[in-house]
Amino acid sequence: MLTYVKYLEYCKIKLVKRIKIVTDSVSCIPKEIIKKLDIKVVPFYFKIDNKEYKDGIDIDTRDVYKFVEEGYPFRAYPPKVEDFLNVFNSLKEKVILCITLSSTFSACIRNCKIAKEMVKDKKIEVIDSLNGAAGEGLLAIYASRLSEKGKKLTEIVSLTKRLATRIKTVVMLDTIKYVFRTGRIPKTLSNFGSLFSLKPILMLHNGKIKPVKLVRNKDRGIQKLLEILLREKEPLHVVVMHADDEIEGRKLVKKIKETVAVREIFLTEFTPIMGFATGKKLIGVSFYSERGEL
């Protein structure tokens, strides 16, 4: 039964002007969730064989991975200042929170902040996700839900920044050879990993990538991902990512549901912007514990 107090609270939430959440396309948020939560996504760019594309708009993700696999020249770069400026000016909301890919990997947040200073008639806050891919997406989803509850901007910013330090992204690469192209590992290690068909498991947390383990096959890698999840306080919010390997992604979702207590879990495609450095067949998870202190 709806009490009078609850009714007043409901009316208060409805009357609050919703804070618009903006993020970039590296966040890997499924289209249905973007639509449901009304999140605005600003696309990254990439060039393949000197032709420019907007991530998630001009070309299918599977086609991107096909080009990567075939060795076409590939370069990714963040939304331009004018892209963010156009988005900010086009939004009807007067209060905006923009969450970007970690500043460790991209100038995206710099361009966003420059655009922010050019908008004088709106209140805009910018947050470094300290993460990427679905880890960034989880943060945008969390902030959007806080906005829907009628939270004030200062509270949303504070809570979202605190959650950013706790979200982890763990991925298993099918091969080590693509990471070498980024210059993040020595060529000798790349050759060693490729020779023995080793699959590296990497963790992204607080803006830093660290190696977790090298495994000899996918089954051992999946087991390691499950072990990492089981070490966290349950229940968990989990996103499973795959790079052009939906079947394996769905299998991992099923295994996680059978093994780990989850509050929510969904499947998404790994962004080809980062997939350039990982190659096809990547499988991974982004997650955080609901029981962590916020």
Score class of each variant (00 low, 15 high):
103 S>G: 13
143 A>T: 08
64 V>K: 02
273 I>S: 01
254 K>Q: 14
231 R>I: 07
119 V>G: 02
79 P>C: 11
229 L>C: 02
96 I>W: 09
62 R>V: 11
66 K>E: 12
137 G>D: 05
21 I>Q: 09
250 R>E: 15
45 Y>I: 05
293 E>Y: 13
287 F>N: 00
267 L>F: 09
89 N>H: 09
289 S>T: 05
147 S>E: 02
156 I>P: 01
209 I>R: 10
45 Y>A: 03
227 E>L: 06
62 R>C: 06
162 R>G: 10
277 A>N: 14
170 V>D: 00
15 L>Y: 10
22 V>C: 03
20 K>I: 04
25 S>G: 01
230 L>S: 15
84 F>M: 01
254 K>E: 14
122 K>W: 09
37 L>A: 08
21 I>S: 04
292 G>T: 11
117 E>Q: 11
163 L>W: 08
139 L>T: 00
247 I>F: 12
236 L>K: 01
101 L>C: 07
120 K>G: 04
177 K>F: 12
30 P>L: 08
37 L>C: 08
232 E>F: 07
53 Y>T: 08
72 Y>G: 00
136 E>N: 14
61 T>G: 05
241 M>E: 13
48 I>T: 13
154 T>K: 15
230 L>Y: 10
279 G>H: 08
61 T>I: 14
75 R>M: 10
220 R>C: 04
40 K>L: 08
155 E>I: 12
4 Y>P: 04
31 K>H: 12
35 K>C: 04
117 E>M: 10
5 V>K: 15
214 L>M: 14
199 K>A: 00
58 D>A: 02
88 F>C: 10
42 V>Q: 03
229 L>G: 01
8 L>C: 12
191 N>P: 00
56 G>E: 03
115 A>E: 13
150 G>F: 04
271 T>C: 01
111 N>E: 07
202 L>N: 10
145 R>M: 07
16 V>E: 14
127 I>E: 00
48 I>P: 02
30 P>N: 12
82 E>G: 06
239 V>S: 01
256 I>G: 04
238 V>S: 00
88 F>R: 11
55 D>T: 07
170 V>H: 03
10 Y>P: 03
250 R>Q: 13
171 V>I: 15
125 E>Y: 07
65 Y>F: 15
159 L>M: 04
230 L>G: 08
214 L>S: 04
97 L>T: 04
26 V>M: 07
264 E>A: 08
185 I>G: 00
179 V>F: 15
56 G>P: 01
262 V>A: 00
193 G>R: 03
205 H>T: 11
109 I>A: 01
110 R>Y: 12
236 L>Q: 03
273 I>P: 00
111 N>L: 01
278 T>F: 12
56 G>H: 00
148 E>C: 06
65 Y>C: 05
27 S>Y: 08
18 R>I: 03
143 A>H: 10
193 G>V: 06
200 P>W: 13
75 R>H: 13
100 T>N: 03
162 R>K: 15
284 G>I: 02
64 V>G: 01
204 L>F: 12
